[in-house]
Simulated assay, not measured.
Amino acid sequence: MLDFDPLYSTPQAEAIERFIQEHYGVPGPVRCRMIHRGLNDVYLVTDNHGQRYVFRLSHVRARGRADVETETAFLDHLSRSKVPVAAPIPTRDGALYTQGRAPEGVREGVLFQAIAGREPIATDAGDALANGKTLALMHNAAETFSSDRALYRLDLEHLLHRPLARIRDSGIVEDPKVLGDLEDIASRTANAIEAFGNLTWTYCHGDCHGFNARINDAGDAVFFDFDDGGPGYLAYDLSVFLWAKVSFGRKLTPMWDAFLEGYRAGRPIAPYDFEAAQRFVIVRHFWLMGEYASRSPEWGSNAVGWIAREATFLKTWEMDRFADRLF
């Protein structure tokens, strides 16, 4: 009989329940159900008193192992700095994360307190403003956090060049002209960003697109999902929100204005960072395409075939925003 090496496994909810009971001091018995399967596996956990938690089991991705050590240390720092975030819950041993063995290898787990509040609304300017306010608070607090031990840096190699290589190597984009267009756009974008030379560096959330938050009763945006964070360009962290309002056919730029208003209420934006954020919209799209391309062996090529059509959005954004500087 042939043994198949697993690329990815999904633990049963009962196994997650046993794992949490073993490693965390939450009142048992706990009940668990999966709420999301994707770049990571996410479970809703309820203890014997009705208290709700979220357990995230990290997936090994193209970038490498999850940097949960730096992520959870940063979240702990933010929580102590009174920034509204979903802080990690310590294990019985006081660690902010733990590890378990799956058929494909070791995977990292983090237990979070579930956030009260509602999901943000894409067209609500108040929610956009709240996201901007919390991101500014986060960047302010990041000034007193040391990320020297971080595994990943959100630089152009991580966000643009490696994702482009994953797209190319995946074979999803079969048309040589489209692939050439993507390579040209990436090259022009990298050159334009590098020409700034003085962009602000900070610790980034990495995925602040407006929905990795809950809006609490006070109207604050409470952030979660820092899995793609790390030291990187502040302009990139800003750009993710803009990208979410203009990509995939969306036309929600007024929400970008509200987001900026909220951010500037707590922290100024240097003119060069603001201008660079427009360029980083392209970088963000390449990052997403690269992530999906890298998962084609698991998800299948049909699930990521949309990547081959995205050169049109990137060229349109380039022409609309930078036509006078392209040639």
Score class of each variant (00 low, 15 high):
N140W: 01
A87K: 01
Q21P: 01
V173F: 00
G180R: 05
R149F: 06
R188C: 01
E14S: 13
Q21G: 15
R37C: 03
Y272P: 04
Y24I: 03
F327K: 10
D47G: 11
S170V: 02
Q51L: 06
H77N: 00
D207E: 13
Y53G: 11
T46K: 09
F145Y: 15
T98E: 10
V45R: 08
P84S: 03
G197A: 07
Q278P: 03
E310I: 02
E14C: 00
G229F: 02
T144S: 14
R321H: 13
G50N: 09
G180C: 05
L129S: 14
A311R: 08
L234V: 05
L326R: 13
I115C: 11
I89Q: 10
T10F: 14
C204H: 09
H59F: 10
A62Y: 15
D155T: 03
E174D: 14
R92C: 06
E17I: 07
D324A: 14
G262Q: 12
I215H: 07
G64M: 09
L160K: 04
E183W: 07
P6A: 12
V304L: 03
A122T: 09
D175R: 03
R33P: 05
D47E: 09
R279L: 13
A265K: 12
A142V: 04
G210I: 13
A213Y: 07
A308H: 02
T46F: 00
L78Q: 00
A130E: 05
A258C: 03
E157P: 02
V26T: 10
H205I: 11
D220T: 07
V85L: 06
G210E: 09
E291D: 04
R63K: 13
D169W: 00
S294I: 07
G38P: 00
G100V: 12
R61E: 13
E194P: 01
R80P: 05
N198Q: 12
A303T: 12
F74Y: 12
G266L: 11
G50V: 11
L199G: 06
L2Q: 14
I16W: 02
T189L: 04
P6G: 02
F196H: 10
V246F: 05
L96H: 10
L182T: 04
R80M: 10
H161A: 08
L160P: 02
A102M: 15
L288S: 13
L57D: 01
L314V: 05
R63Q: 11
G290T: 03
R18E: 14
L199E: 06
L242M: 14
F226I: 15
G249D: 10
L2E: 15
S296K: 12
G230P: 02
A95Q: 15
R295E: 14
V246D: 05
Y8M: 00
P176V: 09
R309I: 02
L78I: 06
